[in-house]
Amino acid sequence: MWHVRAEIAPAILLVVDFGGWYRLDSKSWNGSSLDMIRHTQVSLLKDVIVPYTHLLPRLQLSEKKRNTLLYFKGAKHRHRGGIVRENLWDLLVNEPGVIMEEGFPNATGREQSIRGMRTSEFCLHPAGDTPTSCRLFDAIQSLCIPVIVSDNIELPFEGMMDYTEFSVFVAGDDALKPTWLMDHLRSISEKQKEELRRNMAKIQLIYQYENSHPGGIGPISPNGAVNHIWKKIHQKLPVIKEAIVREKRKPPGVSIPLRCHCT
């Protein structure tokens, strides 16, 4: 995909996040900045963040007691962006009320992940190789309140929903202070947690791509991910048109930084 980046840059890109776009192309890097994806080629102004496909099934809202405070399943070590995760792991692994498991919710770890997320109040979501992952959307389907440890993260459908209504956001520096994160989570009342889960239950369908028809044949859900992606694209169009007009009307010889790579 890297060799066609200039050709596809003007399109509205559907990306799960921008985490892998700002790195150097290691296969062709020769020290030139031309080998780096520029911020105008992928842009929050023109592109659309879409959700990862969740791997765990949807859980209906109930009053069943959750006995674990905080749950995380994933890799401790990541290739990029994993320093906070590694330090958090060391900080939390022996904490009472916390379960930190190595692995992924694939064929061998799926039941373990379902059990862990469905019996935990909060699910930890630190950035790793990319800012987001299917873990966040598995937590939403499991009604496990996401604890998002990231100072800069792009999330799907922002502006169409408010993530603070069902998630907890934590700065990386705060999360790495001894006892700070656990004290913060324990300070959240039962009433607040119930409200966060109720709000989460209202938006679970927004992250689902399937239409529940046999073989996937049939109309898509009006409240599902596909329709929300189209709505988000529709929201982007006036801003893109404005950026194109601004670029075309600048006087000859004047250099103004592009707002996005739009044509």
Rank of each mutant, 00 (worst) to 15 (best):
L88V: 03
V50W: 01
S167G: 07
F166Q: 04
F157E: 06
L70E: 04
L69Q: 11
T119S: 14
I240M: 03
R197P: 06
Q235D: 12
R259D: 08
I8A: 12
M100Q: 02
G109S: 09
R259K: 15
K64M: 13
P219D: 15
V16E: 09
R38F: 03
N106P: 00
L69A: 05
I8Q: 07
D129C: 02
L69F: 01
L59S: 13
G172M: 07
I49D: 02
Y71I: 02
D47W: 10
M182W: 02
S43Q: 11
L155E: 01
T263W: 07
D17K: 08
K27P: 00
T164A: 10
G82A: 13
K73L: 15
G97Q: 08
W230S: 02
P238L: 04
W2T: 03
R110C: 02
G81R: 12
P178E: 15
M160W: 03
L143E: 02
A139S: 15
C262H: 00
A6F: 07
L91Y: 04
I217D: 08
R110L: 10
L44Y: 05
I206H: 14
Q235L: 14
M100I: 04
H261D: 15
V48H: 06
I203Q: 06
E7H: 07
E95Y: 11
P219L: 14
W29I: 10
H77E: 13
V98E: 06
T119A: 01
D25E: 14
K232G: 00
H79C: 01
L55H: 12
I220H: 13
K65M: 06
R186Y: 06
